[in-house]
Amino acid sequence: MKLALASAPASVESARKQPAIQVSNLSIVFDTRRGQTIAVDRVSFDVAPGEFICIVGPSGCGKSTVLNTIAGLEVPFEGDILVEGSRVYSPRPDVGMVFQQPHLFPWKSVRRNIAHGPRMLGKSRTEANAIADDLIAMVGLKRFADAYPNTLSGGMQQRVAIARALANQPRVLLMDEPFGALDAQTRAVMQDNLLELRDRIKATIVFVTHDIDEAIVLADRVLIMSAGPGRILREVAVKLPRPRSNSVMVEPTYLSLKKDCLDVIRAEGLRAFNQSDAS
């Protein structure tokens, strides 16, 4: 591999000392016309270096807000967020992000899109293009290096977006429902691609989705969130072997994990339903 995208933790011990991400007592309150809405309520979790966690929850549970806050995009919050040991106030190049929409720069070719980050960090055009070309090969888009985004399919665009986020060699990669807008087949392929990619880049990944299957297939650990206000209901460790692929979905371990998750979600749904009934 030509590219060392993020160095693995120096030792297991130092990894234990400092999580890649520490979220403690994170609360986010939005001002609305009818007063204040608590979007996220005292959420705390740690992510170990190199760990892959998925946050699942219904739409509107604040999972994307949590992710944006870690990215430094959501400004006012209460609590504490440490990434690689330092506080987050604004976007930083060691934290990469992939959004639900690819948000590629339409006026730049695939190569230039991916080279954008390194260019902004002061790399020369030649260096940036070399980084881009390595990543283009990694996501399997060699034939499309000079194509413009509007000529690519949704899945290919999202692959470019992932490559672009990796170009700055982030230690933390945040993914906000990146496959949410894709059809089922493309989605399965993308999940496999990401699993493969992940084994090579060794970055810490926080992946937000509302799809439990996707969460279990991808993650080392799944955080299940509830809506209104957003809280973490349960953490489920996914003890499925790696390297993994989409086909783990038929294994008994997988199915029992999924049942655990569904039970939590069903209980929460019932509670919310009864609450709204009573009020």
């Binding site: 604004s90 976007p91 930083r92 948000h103």
Partner: peptide
Amino acid sequence: DRGLIRAALMLGTPRRQ
């Protein structure tokens, strides 16, 4: 597109650029 600006920010594009 605000999304493009957010993406650019995440990639280290300085606000003045």
